[in-house]
Design a protein around this nucleic acid. Structure first.
Length: 532
DNA sequence: GTAGGGTTAG
């Protein structure tokens, strides 16, 4: 049990509770077609089983807001709510913003004494986990009196949702020790864990278990396709795909995505052309166009998206925007960006980057600032900051780069990491401001930010450009110590010696590289020589 | 009450 029974509710300030309760009012127009004949006034006073069923069906219909409104209405009008009321209410919480909503329901459950059942607690675990409260999710599991396979699976999902694949493997081991009979849900999670850990042989063992269990083949095959694709074993993924009924869109989509990730573009387009377009397949296919700067196919997919009414989908628009940007069509990208109604952080980041890669650092910087002025709920993340720094750097806007780091820190509490500092130091080096680059390095170290290879590489390059030999040699040593098996690092170090005319040292570095059998990947261009 | 497919950086 919780150490303090009313803690989740007590943690919420009274004003917050009131705001959540008042924020939603019961809507007279039910959004689920199944219930259009119910009158608004009648619903809360029907027998509990009936209203619980209505609540659950609203959640199943995907009408989380409607379910939440109904739950509030029930909570206000009656005192006999049970676990079957709270479980769908928790599901609705998972799909709605405002993490305190779930905590509020938890508090009410404790107050009404319906928080101890396995099903209620599993739903609670899921809510906390989806709101990023991993510790609380694990705590609810730990305090669960009777754990069944669903609650164990929910624990696996909680860890995986937070990227903790090793913890998920430990949970799986515990399940075996406790003799929990695993389900297809467990196997799906294990495949995800293996993919995250790049544990190919363990993933293959899970594949063996899938064959033995043989249930829900569509979902498990989709998970296997995703696993093999993310491991780079596209042939294995195709084998799985070819062995099962492919009528399911989800499986085809997984295969398209796998092909794109493994650079099998023709195969991806071939699968796509054999099915009715869906928004996810088109998004994956567009990612291939973005990678290849293939404006011709990108435009065709844009047309299909318009024809099928998918242009309200933010993720699709984001990758389309990226395709236009990478093809140099920054005007098209801007028009598209302006048309996206539900712009998310990826939309903003992609547009900032679009300006950056098309040489307009000032536009990128202005857009980054505008993001803060709009008081929108979208806040920049570490990719956004990197995009604006890169944009400023490539346009020689060093001061704007510094201003971006400060803005991110002061306005969003987003502290620059080593990658950001590396990008900024690189721009300082290219602007001839080597002393400033070293000042930033010291600022970074004093801020307890540990330099990584990107930092040493940026400093080494800055030293080559600015003829700073002694500190450059230090950077070279650190770089090769931290990452001794990357060919690109040896090239950077040999370029450094070349900048000082130290040919013997250059030859020694190149020989060391050869001795290790390292080969620098050749550069390539995606420019289409003869576009249609 | 728990699983499967899509987007952004260097």
């Amino acid at each position: 049990m919780f150490p303090c029974i009313s803690r989740p509710l007590a943690r919420l300030p009274a004003k917050t509770i009131l705001r959540i309760l008042k924020a939603s009012s019961f809507r007279a127009i039910p959004t689920c077609k199944l219930h259009t004949h119910h009158s608004f006034d009648e619903i809360p006073h029907r027998d509990l089983r009936s209203v619980n069923s209505l609540l659950a069906s609203r959640v199943r219909c995907g009408d989380a807001a409607g379910a939440w409104d109904l739950f509030l209405c029930l909570h206000r009008s009656r005192t006999d709510l049970d676990a079957y009321t709270f479980t769908p209410a928790l599901s609705a919480c998972s799909a709605l913003p405002h993490p305190q909503r779930g905590r509020l329901v938890h508090g009410l459950m404790i107050k009404m004494g319906v928080d101890s059942g396995t099903i209620s607690r599993t739903a609670l675990m899921d809510v906390y986990s989806k709101y990023g409260r991993l510790n609380e999710s694990v705590k609810v599991f730990g305090e669960m009196e009777f754990k069944d396979v669903v609650s164990w699976n929910a624990l696996l999902s909680s860890f995986l949702r937070h990227g903790l694949a090793n913890c998920a493997l430990d949970v799986f081991e515990d399940m075996r020790k406790e003799n929990v009979e695993i389900s297809e849900f467990t196997l799906c999670s294990m495949l995800k864990a293996c993919a995250l850990l790049e544990a190919c042989s363990q993933g293959k063992q899970v594949h063996g278990m899938v064959v033995v269990i043989g249930r829900d083949l569509v979902v498990l095959s989709t998970a296997l396709i995703d696993f093999y694709s993310s491991m780079g074993h596209i042939e294995e993924a195709l084998k799985v795909y070819n062995c099962v009924d492919r009528s399911e869109n989800v499986m085809r989509n997984a295969m398209i995505s796998g092909c794109v990730r493994n650079l099998k573009y023709k195969e991806a387009f071939s699968i796509m052309s054999s099915m009715k377009p869906n928004v996810i397949a088109l998004t994956s296919a567009l990612a291939a166009c973005s990678e290849n700067s293939d404006l011709w196919i990108g435009k065709q997919i844009h047309c299909v998206a318009i024809r099928f009414g998918f242009t309200s989908d933010t993720q699709l628009c984001n990758v389309l925007l990226d395709t236009y940007a990478k093809c140099g069509k920054v005007g098209h990208a801007k028009t598209l960006f302006d048309s996206i109604l539900g712009k998310d952080v990826v939309s903003w980041t992609t547009m900032i980057d679009a300006h950056g890669i098309n040489g307009n650092g000032l536009e990128a910087f202005m857009l980054f600032n505008k993001m803060g002025e709009l008081r929108s709920e979208v806040t920049p993340n570490h990719v956004t900051l990197l995009a604006v720094l890169s944009a400023c750097g490539h346009s020689g806007l060093v001061d704007q780069g510094r201003a971006s780091i400060n803005l991110a820190r002061d306005k969003y509490g987003l502290n620059a990491g080593p990658e950001h500092y590396a990008c900024f130091m690189d721009s300082l080096g290219r602007a001839g401001r080597i002393e400033d680059a070293w000042c930033v390095f010291h600022e970074m170290v004093e801020g307890k930010c540990r330099p990584n290879t990107a930092v040493w590489a940026a400093l080494l390059n800055a030293c080559s450009l600015n003829r700073d030999f002694s500190r450059g040699e230090r950077a070279a040593k650190q770089l090769l110590e931290l990452e001794p098996d990357k060919a690109g690092n040896y090239v950077l170090v040999s370029n450094f010696y070349a900048a000082f005319g130290m040919w013997d040292s250059l030859v020694a570095v190149r020989n060391e590289m050869k001795k290790k059998g390292l080969v620098k990947e050749s550069g390539s261009s995606w420019v289409t020589a003869n576009p249609p």
